[in-house]
């Protein structure tokens, strides 16, 4: 009740204080700039690929890099991100109480969170869903090839149903073997009791990369059976902050689309090949004013953290131990579902 009341209060307060539309400045951004740090969510431990700690006791991961990108856009320096360790249960109350400014923590966008918890979500920056993993020596590349095979699955999960539906719609004959625990499931798969097993995609990738003796002997099939959009979560009532977060993510995607990387960003800004890039990188004015920031915020952000593709490959993709395929998390132009709103 308290949380909801507070959120409503914030919403009302914010609703009354948006006089200008052109140079809107959100109270959250003002507070972040006054404080000089952006408070982001970390984890009480580690969540593979998204939030981890390196050998120098520093945070790393996809979510951490997005937080650093956001910090660079707002404050001009990725080092000004302050990562607050939070448990899963604690993340939403911590956001409401102001312990963090934003939650970027493998958090799915659901209706309950959006409405009842008083949160607002950004555009999705990651998609994860059920996928198949199979023994490499079977020569399988897609779910159609599973014809006549056995598939291991965790009992009673939504994934069990999703997989059955998916294979039925492909008219693939199969035998489903269910196990109570994830560890039993793994052992059964490794003992060749089933040809493939089905689970959350990023989990499979991490399992393959870290706990299987010979990762190359297993393939993750490209079929995406289900899909959960992962977004940044913010407090309700500060639309301008949500706008900023959306455009921050959009800028990372547009940069990848236009081939702007952390290496060539200075060069691109000096000689922009087209007006869109000129605007994005602040060679032409407009990018900053609309969000109440510097014109060069996107340029500085890309110079510090790279575009979306670079961030992905560093933490989950080919430059990480996990080697997770882009799949859905590729640009729409490369067969994924990530796309940015139009930069005009």
């Amino acid at each position: 009740m308290q949380i909801k009341g507070l959120a409503t209060g914030l919403a009302v307060a914010a609703g009354l204080t948006i006089p200008s539309l052109a140079m809107a400045k959100s109270p959250t951004i003002t507070a972040i700039q006054d404080r000089g740090t952006l408070l982001c969510s970390g984890h009480n431990g580690s969540y593979f690929g998204f939030v981890e700690v390196n050998d120098q006791n520093e945070w790393k991961g996809l979510d951490i890099d997005l937080c650093r990108a956001m910090t660079t856009a707002l404050l001009g320096d990725p080092e000004k991100a302050q990562i607050v360790p939070l448990s899963w249960a604690q993340r939403f109350p911590a956001l409401q109480s102001g312990d963090v400014d934003v939650i970027i923590k493998a958090t799915g966008w659901t209706m309950g969170r959006d409405t009842e918890l008083g949160l607002q979500f950004s555009i999705p920056y990651f998609f994860g869903g059920a996928q198949f993993m199979a023994h490499g020596d079977l020569g399988i590349t897609e779910a159609k090839d599973l014809e006549g095979g056995t598939i291991c699955v965790e009992a009673g999960t939504t994934i069990e149903r999703i997989a059955a539906n998916y294979l039925q719609s492909l008219a693939v004959e199969h035998t489903m073997v269910s196990y109570e625990k994830a560890s039993e499931l793994r052992a059964a798969y490794l003992a060749n009791r089933c040809d493939s097993f089905v689970a959350w995609g990023p989990f499979l990738a991490v399992l393959r990369a870290t706990e299987l003796e010979n990762p190359d002997a297993h393939v993750i099939l490209n079929d995406q059976l289900s899909n959960e959009p992962i977004s940044a979560a913010m407090r309700q009532g500060d639309e301008d902050f949500v706008d900023f977060t959306n455009w921050m993510l959009a800028a990372l995607l547009i940069a990848e689309e236009e081939g702007i990387t952390s290496e060539n960003v200075e060069e691109m800004a000096a000689n922009p090949p087209n007006p869109k890039i000129a605007r994005l990188l602040g060679a032409e004015p407009g990018m900053g004013e609309r969000l109440g920031l510097r014109d060069t915020w996107a340029k500085e952000m890309i110079a510090a953290m790279g575009n979306y593709g670079e961030i992905y490959h560093r933490n989950l993709g080919e430059n990480s131990p996990y080697k997770l395929e882009r799949g859905l998390n590729n640009l729409w132009s490369h067969g994924g579902v990530l796309y940015a709103p139009q930069l005009d």
């Binding site: 009480n44 431990g45 580690s46 969540y47 607050v84 360790p85 939070l86 448990s87 249960a89 990369a209």
Partner: peptide, 20 residues
Amino acid sequence: IIIGFFDILASANAAFGTGE
């Protein structure tokens, strides 16, 4: 650890919580 403190068990969790 539940309220987000990085005590010895949490840091142990982080220590084996990377791919390598």
